[in-house]
């Protein structure tokens, strides 16, 4: 068996039992995935092993590497700058999940109807999601400018006072969430739109026959039936919001001060500005566990929405 692993083109051996044949064939189909598994091992598994190893070493590039056990993790527990970064990341995530999911669901209901040029308009709607994040970040940086930016001009048109946007510690996180919401609402829209398309039509029709208004139909039928898809959107959004890097880094680099330093930005600075490899590796491990915990938690919630 081991020899033939390489030659995926072999014909299936004529086996005596049907069960045996299908078992062997299943085995052979796995071979199609072998090259991919090799790549995964090289580019994904190797970094993980290296990171786990480094997270128990004290090593700053240029100095000697020393085994320190769990010291890096213990230091993280005491590091108030890291704690603040975790808090900011969670706040950012809550906002950057809630807003796109709310707006994306509304947009999906809108695009679910049939109207002329629907595909074209949907194409325009999804543009933010496909645009290069760094390029977008650049445009938003200019729009956020407190004196010359177009956003404060727009606020003045509707009689609102100007904001300092990303230039003040207390508004920087909401302003960054605005960019994230602008960019990723389309992804939620597409996922929920898929859910609406897969929805059975009978309950809807019978409700309309029973004389239910559009809001009642949405609340009692559309929403419960698409809830599993909305939960998928919530899980994906949560993972992406926790990992958000490009726009935050390009717009503020964690500033002003450390007011927008999320875990990812903190990690970048520790690893590639201060070159504290051991410390940064411990951050990676803790960060990943946080993402997994949140994703698993949300998936459990999703299971419950399926039963409801």
């Amino acid at each position: 068996m081991g020899m033939t692993l390489i030659s995926a083109g072999r014909r299936p051996a004529r086996a005596a039992g049907r069960a045996g044949a299908s078992y062997r064939r299943r085995d052979k189909y796995i071979r199609f995935a072998l090259p991919a598994l090799l790549v995964v091992a090289a580019v994904i598994v190797f970094p993980w092993l290296y990171t786990l190893f480094m997270s128990v070493q004290e090593w700053q590039v240029g100095s000697d590497r020393v085994f320190v056990g769990l010291d890096n993790y213990a230091n993280l527990l005491r590091d108030t700058r890291f704690h603040a970064a975790v808090g900011r990341t969670l706040a950012y995530t809550v906002l950057a999940v809630a807003l796109p999911v709310l707006l994306g669901t509304i947009a999906a209901v809108f695009f679910h109807r049939d109207f002329p040029w629907r595909g074209f308009f949907r194409g325009i709607f999804v543009l933010p999601m496909m645009a290069t994040p760094v390029a977008i970040a650049l445009v938003w940086t200019m729009m956020f400018h407190p004196q010359l930016g177009v956003l404060n001009y727009l606020l003045s048109l509707v009689g609102l006072p100007p904001s300092l946007w990303v230039y003040a510690p207390n508004t920087v996180i909401p302003a960054l969430v605005l960019v994230e919401t602008w960019q990723w609402t389309p992804l939620v829209m597409l996922i929920v739109l898929g859910g609406l398309a897969a929805m059975p039509t009978e309950p809807l029709e019978s409700a309309v026959v029973d004389g239910a208004g559009p809001w009642r139909v949405f609340r009692d039928i559309t929403l419960p039936l698409t809830l599993p898809f909305i939960m998928v959107a919530v899980v994906l959004r949560a993972i992406d919001a926790l990992k958000a890097f490009d726009t935050i880094f390009a717009i503020t680099q964690g500033g002003p001060g450390t007011a927008s330093e999320t875990i990812n930005i903190y990690l970048y600075l520790q690893a590639f500005s201060f070159f504290r490899i051991g410390h940064a590796s411990a951050v990676v491990v803790v960060f990943f566990l946080l993402i997994v915990a949140l994703a698993v938690g949300l998936l459990l919630v999703r299971q419950r929405t399926k039963w409801a």
Binding site: I44, Y50, I239, K243, F245, L267, S281, V284, F288
Partner: peptide, 20 residues
Amino acid sequence: VVLVSRMTPGLSYLIPWFML
């Protein structure tokens, strides 16, 4: 495996790759 790679922040690959 695909799902795990979706959850891993890109930055966490970078230290090992950078060294490698």
